[in-house]
Nucleic acid binder design. Sequence first.
DNA 1: TTGCATCTACGAATCTTTTCGTATACCTTT
DNA 2: AAAGGTATACGAAAAGATTCGTAGATGCAA
Lengths: 130, 130
Amino acid sequence: MTMMQPTEGELVILQVLWSDGPSTVRAVNERLNAESEREIGYTTTLKLMQLMLSKGLVSRDDSTRTHVYAAELPREKAQQNLLQRFVDSTFGGSAGSLVLRALGEGQTSPEELAAIKQLIKQLENEASND
Amino acid sequence: MTMMQPTEGELVILQVLWSDGPSTVRAVNERLNAESEREIGYTTTLKLMQLMLSKGLVSRDDSTRTHVYAAELPREKAQQNLLQRFVDSTFGGSAGSLVLRALGEGQTSPEELAAIKQLIKQLENEASND
DNA sequence: TTGCATCTACGAATCTTTTCGTATACCTTT
DNA sequence: AAAGGTATACGAAAAGATTCGTAGATGCAA
């Protein structure tokens, strides 16, 4: 069950599929161009998505002429893998220092902070019960 | 003051310089080969560090025949920039959800958890004083 | 001093990722 | 049925990152 990890460009496309659900190449391409200054050609997006298909990162419904692509790699799994890599490469393996820096940016909403507090409480309880 | 961001390979070298301080190419190369199965040629490391010099990521003392390189991009700044990019690309911009997942991995020490709790407390106080 | 080890510089091969041009097929509208 | 718009497939260029071979300089040891 080892799934190849997405490249940077593939990740951008996965974001769209994750948030919008199954989409056509056209739809994805327009989303990409909407949120960025740089114009990305249609066939560029197409090619990338075809590559992702061959890697198994996405699936494709080609029962209609205009194919519909869906993310095959679940968001959670991708985030988990990439996070692990990122912690190792950039924070020398320390998740704690990453968290401190992430929170330090001060762009976290009160709701999220509350959720984090609760998770910490839970982790501390588990620890004391070992 | 825009400093070019390091590539993946450059980041590995920066990790060494950050943790060991100013080092020769030989020293860096040996550290890289020590902690990895893959053998990396000496001139490969050399070339990479020369590129990093031209990008300004490192500085170099060439007053002796064997040059000594030092990280020019501070660890904190690099982590901050890369974290921002990572949050955007992988967590759709939500630092909170990154934190939740990072903590969820359960590899955070009690000391770090305590530090995080304290930071949150501080952030909440600041918020209520606005 | 002669030779060996080690250093830097640098061009270029290789690999990966991204980008796009072009050919071709299909649908829709007229 | 012809034309125009939009699709996919695919080769290959372009861009970026990594790797290494080789040449030439310098220091050191016998």
